[in-house]
Structures are given as structure tokens and as C-alpha cells.
Simulated assay, not measured.
Amino acid sequence: MKLNDFLKPELLGNKFLAVKGYTEVLDRETQQLSAYRLNVNIQDEDSDFFMEMIQVKVNNLSPTVSFQDLKTNKTMPIILENIQVGQYNGTLWFNCTNVLPVSK
């Protein structure tokens, strides 16, 4: 068994809460905007990581949940589309392709 066997997005659950707003991620070489970072609180009570705060890199320059949506709401229930979990040099990283609102 390897460490990567435990890096499954399903372990996080599927209820997330965006906290505050996005921050910009710049490309190291060009210093151009390449993605956004979002603080996310895990809200799934069945997850071993319930109430943990993680930073998720959003690989989309125009996510469905916009800057304005998070500017007017300090927290917001969200769906992380295509979330992935990995590790590099002992540090966990999280990314997704889009941030969607939770439909009621």
C-alpha cells in the first residue's frame, strides 16, 4: 500500500463551504494570472476531515461562483467540480476545475 492510495477526494465528502474570496495565483515564469486559490471548509459530517480548512487551487479563470458572489457572501455552500488531491514533498495539494453553487 502506498501513500497515494489514501489521497482520494471521496474521503473529503461532498459538502463544502467557500470562505471569504479568491486569491490570485501567478505563473512562476511569466507572472501572469494562471489560476485562483480558495479557502474551503469541509462540511460533510461523515468525513474524517469534518470542519477542516483546506486551500483549493481553481484551474479556471472564470469560475461559475464569481468573485462578486463571494464578495457579497463571506461564506457560501459550493460544489468543487473534478476535485483532485495529491502530495508533493510531504505536502497535500487540492485542485478543481470549477466552483459551482449548491442548488437548493
Rank of each mutant, 00 (worst) to 15 (best):
M1N: 13
M1V: 11
M1Q: 12
L3P: 03
F6Y: 15
F6Q: 05
F6M: 12
F6S: 08
F6L: 15
L7W: 03
L7E: 05
L7V: 06
L7N: 10
K8A: 09
P9Q: 08
P9M: 08
E10R: 09
L11V: 09
L11H: 13
N14E: 12
F16P: 01
F16V: 01
F16W: 11
L17D: 00
A18L: 03
A18T: 05
A18W: 01
V19H: 06
K20V: 04
K20H: 09
G21I: 01
G21L: 06
T23I: 07
V25I: 14
L26H: 12
L26N: 11
D27Q: 11
R28F: 06
E29K: 15
E29P: 00
Q31C: 02
Q32R: 15
L33S: 05
L33W: 10
S34H: 06
A35K: 10
A35D: 12
Y36W: 14
Y36L: 10
L38Y: 04
N41A: 10
N41Y: 05
I42E: 01
Q43A: 08
E45G: 01
E45C: 03
D46S: 13
D46F: 11
S47A: 13
S47M: 06
D48A: 15
M51K: 15
M51W: 08
E52P: 01
I54L: 07
I54R: 03
I54N: 04
I54T: 07
Q55L: 10
V56G: 07
K57A: 08
K57G: 00
K57T: 15
V58T: 04
V58K: 04
V58Y: 07
V58R: 00
N59D: 13
N60A: 10
N60T: 09
L61W: 11
L61F: 12
S62Q: 15
S62V: 11
P63E: 04
V65G: 03
V65C: 12
V65H: 08
V65L: 03
V65M: 13
S66W: 12
S66P: 12
Q68L: 08
Q68P: 00
D69P: 08
D69A: 14
D69F: 07
D69V: 07
D69C: 04
L70F: 06
K71A: 15
K71R: 14
K71T: 09
T72W: 00
N73R: 12
N73G: 00
N73F: 02
T75N: 09
T75I: 11
M76K: 14
P77T: 04
I79K: 14
I79Y: 06
L80Q: 07
E81Y: 07
N82R: 13
Q84W: 02
Q84R: 14
V85E: 00
V85G: 02
G86R: 08
G86I: 03
Q87A: 11
Q87I: 02
Y88N: 08
N89Y: 05
N89K: 15
G90F: 06
G90P: 07
T91F: 09
L92S: 05
L92H: 03
W93V: 06
W93A: 04
W93D: 06
F94L: 01
F94P: 05
C96Q: 05
T97N: 14
N98R: 05
V99Y: 05
V99G: 01
V99I: 14
L100E: 09
P101Y: 05
P101G: 04
V102Y: 10
V102H: 10
S103Y: 02
S103F: 00
